[in-house]
Nucleic acid binder design. Sequence first.
DNA 1: TGGAGGAGGTTCGTCAAGCGAACTCAGGGT
DNA 2: ACCCTGAGTTCGCTTGACGAACCTCCTCCA
Lengths: 148, 148
Amino acid sequence: MSELLLDRSRCSVAGTLAVVGEKWTLLVLREAFLGVRRFADFQRILGAPKAVLTDRLAGLVDQGILRRVPYQAEGERQRHEYRLTRKGIDLFPTLVSLMEWGDRYLADGDAPLEIDHRDCGARVHLTLTCDAGHPVDGVRDVTSVRRG
Amino acid sequence: MSELLLDRSRCSVAGTLAVVGEKWTLLVLREAFLGVRRFADFQRILGAPKAVLTDRLAGLVDQGILRRVPYQAEGERQRHEYRLTRKGIDLFPTLVSLMEWGDRYLADGDAPLEIDHRDCGARVHLTLTCDAGHPVDGVRDVTSVRRG
DNA sequence: TGGAGGAGGTTCGTCAAGCGAACTCAGGGT
DNA sequence: ACCCTGAGTTCGCTTGACGAACCTCCTCCA
C-alpha cells in the first residue's frame, strides 16, 4: 500500500483541476477550440451567467491559457477577442478524452461531433501508448511510480 | 462559422462534465486509480468534507462508475469498499490528460507521479492519432464535423 | 460485561459560489 | 440627438461547500 503515502498535494491532476476545474471553464475551452472568440458568442452559446463568464475568461487569461487580442472589424469600433495560447491548445487532449468517454457512455457510441485528421480525413482519437510503442489498454496495464 | 450552430446541449463534453465535473469527483477517481477503496482512506487523503465525499461516492455509484462491494477482513466486521467499474476505468485517459498538462505547465515538466507500462517498464503517454496512423499534433491538425 | 475505539456516515450553522435580471458605459450608425 | 450593440458590473436569491459535532454499528480488550 505504499501508494497511499504519496504526497497528493503536489499531484498534477489536482493542480490542473485548480486551474480549469471550476464550473464552465472547460466548456469555455470547448467553444474556444470550436472557434468561438468573442464574449457575446460564449455567452449566447453556453448560457452561462455573464458574471461567471467574465470571471472564467479573466482567470483563463491570468493563467495564460487564453489571451485577449484587440481587433477591429470594418465599420465597427475596436473590440478584443479571446484566443487560445499554446498552453491552452495543449488542453485539447483533455477535451477529447471527456468527449470520447461521453460518446461511449452517454451518447450510446454515437458521437455528436466527429474529429478528423485535416490531412487525411481519418477519424482522430486518443490512445495510451508506452514509449516502446505498445498499446496500453487501461489502468491494469500500468504501474504508478512516485518520483522525486 | 457553421460550427457556431452546433447543438451544444448534446455535446459529450458537457455530458461527461455533468457526471464527473463537480468538485472532488475527479480527485476521488484519481485515488481510486491509485488503489484507494475505503471511505476513510478517501477522506483522510483528500481532506474533503465527509458530507461532500458521501455525496460524490453515492453519485459515482449511481452512475455506475464505482460499485460498492461488501467484504470482510478477518477479525473485522463486514464493510464495503468502492471499486472502479469498466465505465470508471475508461476515465483513466481523462485523468492522464489532466496529469500530463499539469506536469508540463505546473510542475515544470517534472512529474510527481510516473506511469509506466507494466509489461516493458517504458513510460506511458497519451497521444492523438488518426485511424490511418498519423500522429496528430493538436487542434490545428484537425477538422470538426457535426454528425446526426 | 462494559467501556474504548474506529469505520462510515448524518446533521447543522456558516460562508462562498453560481444564478437571472437589471443596470452601466462606450462607441457607431442614422 | 437618439438608439443600438458589445462587454461587462451590480444586486438579491439560492445552491453548494465547509468544518465541527454527533450518531450507530461492530470488535477488541480488560
